[in-house]
Simulated scan of single mutants.
Amino acid sequence: MEYQQIINSIYNEVLLLENKGTVADYIPELEKVNSNKFGIALIDNHQNNYSIGDAKEKFSIQSISKVLTTAIIFSKIGNDLWQRVGFEPSGNAFNSLVQLEYENGIPRNPFINAGALVIADLMLSHFDNPKAYFLNFIRELAENEAIDYNETVAQSEKEHGFRNAALVNYIKSFHNITNAPEDVLDFYFYQCSIEMTCEDLAKVFQLFSHNGLIPKSKTKFLTTSQCKRMNALMQMCGFYDQAGEFTFKVGLPGKSGVGGGVVAIYPNHYTVAVWSPKLNKKGNSYYGLETLERLTTITEASIF
């Protein structure tokens, strides 16, 4: 497959589209990002790298980090995880409080904010220094020691994270948060502030295209069964209440973040990451989704 030629063609085609999205403005630091940035990186399972545009520029991965914390906890405690959080699509906005009321504080899945806060609570419970563990884990997967938290973004989220504070305290009232809410929020804001390039992100997510194996070290971090379930979660829940449309148009497991990043996995073939900060009304990168729809259409290859 001539991946470089394919992503070059897609990049030039998507650039001609009117980008109808808007940059996330509820986190002030994200609003400052150049909205015209656009990069694509694809890594196949033979470790060949293909990229174009702003694929080497760092950006805040935001909710894409939820996949990685979930994978860590799933690896650590196995199916006990599903006693604390569900694995069904939510059908509501990523920061919704609505479902928690009638589901007794058990978030619908780990990729909505409520679920990610429960995962953050579990990170605090299972690691003495969860921030250091998480950062080192990502650096290992990316083979890049320069990856770090963005302190400014983390503080900006902390100063404007009132809805997340409401979520974690509400879940705490159902006894599904065991640590102090302020500590859970602190870890959560930092995990979302992690900065990576498209190339880093595509490399990190190879864990999920290699059946749970870390390619460089050949370490089996997730069982094949666990990796299958992580990919299923991304397929069903990775794009919030646009997950059905993403499955219909793209046909790959993936995850988006309000920093404008999107990552997708074609198991046993490749991982691909796209960055374009302007988001559609569902909170997903407008150019990112256009790019991935074209990728699976041109290659005539998806999981379906």
Rank of each mutant, 00 (worst) to 15 (best):
F162M: 15
N164C: 10
D44P: 00
K76Y: 14
G251W: 01
V274F: 09
S302H: 05
F189A: 08
D200N: 08
G78V: 12
L117A: 05
I77Y: 09
Y102H: 12
N136R: 03
T219L: 14
N45S: 05
H175A: 13
I73Q: 00
N150P: 07
Y287G: 13
P107K: 14
C192N: 04
T178G: 11
I177C: 01
V250W: 03
N113L: 04
Y188W: 10
L141W: 03
M123P: 01
I298C: 05
P253E: 10
K37N: 10
H46Y: 07
N104V: 04
A24L: 08
P130L: 08
K58V: 15
V23M: 07
E157C: 15
Y270D: 00
G115L: 00
L252H: 01
L81P: 02
C198Q: 01
L42Q: 01
V33W: 02
G283Y: 12
E103Q: 10
L135S: 00
D183I: 04
Q83D: 05
R163G: 13
A243H: 01
D128T: 07
E57L: 04
L68N: 00
F248R: 10
H126C: 02
I171N: 09
C192Q: 00
K66G: 08
L279S: 03
L279H: 02
T291N: 05
N8W: 13
K255F: 02
F205I: 06
N211D: 15
I194T: 09
E88R: 15
D186W: 04
K278N: 03
K158G: 11
T69Y: 04
F174G: 11
F304D: 11
N144Q: 09
I77A: 09
D241T: 12
Q4M: 01
L42T: 01
K56R: 10
V23Y: 04
M1S: 14
S193D: 00
H160C: 12
E57C: 04
L15Y: 13
A114P: 03
S125F: 03
L201E: 11
E57H: 07
H175V: 14
D241M: 04
K220F: 11
Y270L: 06
K249G: 06
N280W: 06
A202R: 00
L213E: 11
C237V: 03
K281D: 12
E300A: 14
A120S: 10
P277V: 07
V33Y: 02
Y266F: 11
A165D: 14
Q5L: 14
Q235V: 12
T22F: 12
S96M: 09
I52Y: 00
I73V: 02
E199L: 13
